[in-house]
Amino acid sequence: MSDDVRNIVLGVVAAGISAALGWIARTYLWKRKLRRKQMFFGMPENSESLLVVNRDPATAEPAVHRIDVFALLELSALIKDCGAHAQVVTQDAAHQGFGERTEFCVGGPGSNRRVLYRPQ
């Protein structure tokens, strides 16, 4: 085996090892970032989350402002990144207990649900 062939083989092997190490490091950092995001928002893998929107009082249909639609799109991308499942409900149809699901209330003051804490 000549010196040129040996140098080429060593170069290919070194490139393969460095590419594998880079891929492992990037995957580790990506998973770490995902776990931190899931912990911050309280949405582990396959969890449920609610997107609470306003209801139009005249027609009893969900009424979402154009700016709020952009927020819902961003939130749905965040929920999908965390591996959770989203459900869009109106503020009067969301009858869940405190802390069971992650809730995002989007809209005016009508979409903010009031949860009373009653110590037992």
Rank of each mutant, 00 (worst) to 15 (best):
P119H: 08
N112E: 11
S76C: 06
G22E: 11
V88H: 11
A93I: 00
V88R: 11
S49H: 04
G110W: 04
S76I: 01
V115M: 13
R26G: 08
N54I: 04
A60R: 12
S2G: 15
E61K: 14
N46A: 12
Q91T: 01
P44K: 08
E45I: 06
V5D: 06
Q120R: 13
P57H: 04
A71P: 00
E61Q: 12
A19H: 04
V53C: 10
L78C: 09
G110Q: 05
G42S: 04
A60H: 12
A60N: 12
L78S: 10
G22M: 10
R114M: 13
M39N: 05
Q38A: 10
P109G: 13
M39P: 00
R113G: 06
E103F: 14
D92G: 03
V89E: 06
L29R: 15
V64G: 05
C105T: 03
G83W: 03
A60T: 02
R32C: 01
E100W: 06
Q96I: 12
I17P: 00
N7L: 14
V53W: 06
E74D: 08
R66A: 10
K37V: 09
G97E: 07
L75R: 04
P109N: 07
V106Y: 01
Q120I: 08
L73E: 14
W30L: 09
G11K: 13
S47K: 07
E74A: 14
A86W: 10
L73D: 13
R6P: 01
L75A: 14
T59P: 00
L29P: 02
A63W: 01
T102F: 14
S76G: 00
W23D: 03
R101S: 06
A86E: 13
G110Y: 02
S76E: 13
A63H: 03
A14T: 06
A94Q: 01
D68P: 03
P119L: 09
R32N: 08
A93T: 10
N7Q: 15
D56Q: 05
L10M: 13
V5C: 01
F98L: 15
N46D: 12
V12D: 12
A14S: 13
V115R: 07
T27M: 08
V12N: 11
H85S: 07
G22L: 11
S76D: 14
S76L: 09
G83I: 01
V69H: 04
A58R: 05
R36N: 09
V5T: 05
E103L: 14
E103I: 15
T102C: 11
G11W: 00
A86S: 14
A94T: 10
D56C: 08
